[in-house]
Amino acid sequence: MSGKTKTEIVICAAVCLAILLVPVFMNDSFLLNKYARYLVLGMLAIALSLSWGYAGILNLGQATTFGLGSYCMAMALKLKTIPIHTGPDGLPDFMVWNNVPELPWFWKPFYSTTFGVTAGIVIPVLFAALLGWFMFRGRVTGVYAAITTLAAMVVVQLVIIDQQAYTGGFNGITDLAQFDVAGFAFDAYGSASYYLVAICLTASLFLALAVTKSKAGLIVQAIRDQEDRVRFFGYDVALYKIFIFSVSGAIAGLAGMLYTIVMEFASPTFMGVPLSLSVVIWVAVGGRQSLVGAMLGALIVAGMQGALSESETFLDSWTLVMGLLFVLVVLFLPKGIAGAVETITARFERRDPAPAQQPQRTDAAGAGTHHLESLP
């Protein structure tokens, strides 16, 4: 294990430990709920960093898998409200209002919470894998891949809104039961839900870190930098892209389920363009090639956005302030906050110059000569 990897693990562990200790010093249930929401958005940023920063796939529709996970959890929790918020036949209230005669077949498995949780990960993964198969097998890259993911998200959102009788339409799925495991309920405003989100965030962060350090992760990063060269070496480029795209979708789906738990509803806005573009901004600010940087970027920007929108001073102009912040970051911190920290740290850790009799060659030709001279 390299020194850089050890440093990344220590930083991730320190950040996650600090997150887990928040309820120890805070008893305000409203703030715990707000911070839990921010942590969920941090998970979403990790998902995008994995596909954009490490694989070079700019997913402008990351909110699609997030929203699918959210709706899977909402469907399972909605069926637990029977007979409250339901009709005489045990139908969800919005189905009664739309004259649906019986519970649709695709709703019935969600009577099982276990199925709902499993579907909240499997369905986003299948969606990401299917979309990735069409894109990457067809060698769609760059801006065209970004536009494709954005278009797919808009289509899914329109379908959700149009099928009001089965999805709740614009209103989404509301009046949900509390998520519970073995009889233990997770109150959206309690510390238990915060810990649930924090633990899932920690697991997602280390899972993503493990993927990036694996052989598959290294190949994906090589594809990001020199796709044609990796293909000439005989690797199935499309397969590796589909893999990383699917892992990103799984993390986003898990984040969507947690968002439904802490928000207590699911809405088509969860898979809207504003949220997807916001995630891109968060990751750009934090640093797209740093998982913990992307997560912290989401926490910082989302926190600032919440504080400014609630302030009387910036009540009508907080969007301009956030736009200015993004412009400044793009101009002066092109690699985000994490990239700036890494650059500053590298300056302090710079080694002493080599002795005069053996100058260190830094150009490409010198590097190649150095390696040749070291051969027996």
Rank of each mutant, 00 (worst) to 15 (best):
I281A: 04
L201C: 04
V237M: 03
D180A: 12
G183T: 00
T269R: 10
F206E: 03
L201D: 05
A238R: 01
Q221F: 01
G286M: 03
N171E: 08
G172V: 02
G272Q: 11
V283D: 02
G256K: 10
F206I: 04
A198V: 14
F265R: 07
I173S: 00
I219M: 11
R231M: 01
Q221H: 02
G272I: 07
F233C: 04
Q221I: 02
L218K: 08
G272D: 15
D225G: 01
Q226R: 07
A182E: 12
V181M: 13
F265C: 06
V279M: 04
V283S: 02
G172T: 02
D225I: 13
D175Q: 12
A222M: 04
F232E: 00
F233L: 07
A177H: 09
G190I: 15
F184E: 14
Q221M: 04
D236F: 00
V237K: 03
S248H: 04
V197C: 09
T260F: 15
L196T: 08
F243S: 01
A222F: 14
R224V: 02
F206W: 08
W282Y: 06
V237I: 04
P274G: 12
Y189D: 15
D225V: 05
V237N: 01
D187L: 11
K215A: 09
V230I: 11
T269K: 13
S191P: 10
V262Q: 13
F233I: 04
L205G: 09
Y195A: 13
L277I: 09
F243L: 03
F265L: 13
V273F: 06
Y235H: 05
Y194L: 05
V279W: 01
I244H: 03
L218W: 02
S204T: 15
S248R: 06
A203L: 09
C200E: 08
S278V: 05
F184M: 10
I281P: 02
I219A: 12
G253F: 03
A252K: 05
A192F: 12
F184R: 07
Q178A: 09
Q226L: 05
K215V: 11
V220L: 01
V285R: 01
Y195K: 06
R229H: 10
L207I: 04
A185K: 06
A238H: 02
A208M: 06
L205D: 09
I223T: 02
R224F: 01
N171D: 14
P274S: 13
P274E: 13
I219G: 10
V285D: 01
V197T: 05
I199N: 01
L209C: 07
I251V: 11
L258T: 15
F206T: 00
L207E: 13
I242P: 05
Y189S: 15
I242W: 00
R224Q: 02
G249D: 08
A185Y: 08
A177N: 03
F206H: 05
C200F: 08
V230A: 04
M271Y: 11
Y189P: 09
L201E: 07
V181I: 14
M257Y: 14
F245R: 00
V220C: 01
N171M: 10
M257L: 09
A192Y: 11
M263K: 05
K241H: 00
D225P: 04
Y194R: 07
L277E: 06
A185F: 14
E264M: 07
G234R: 12
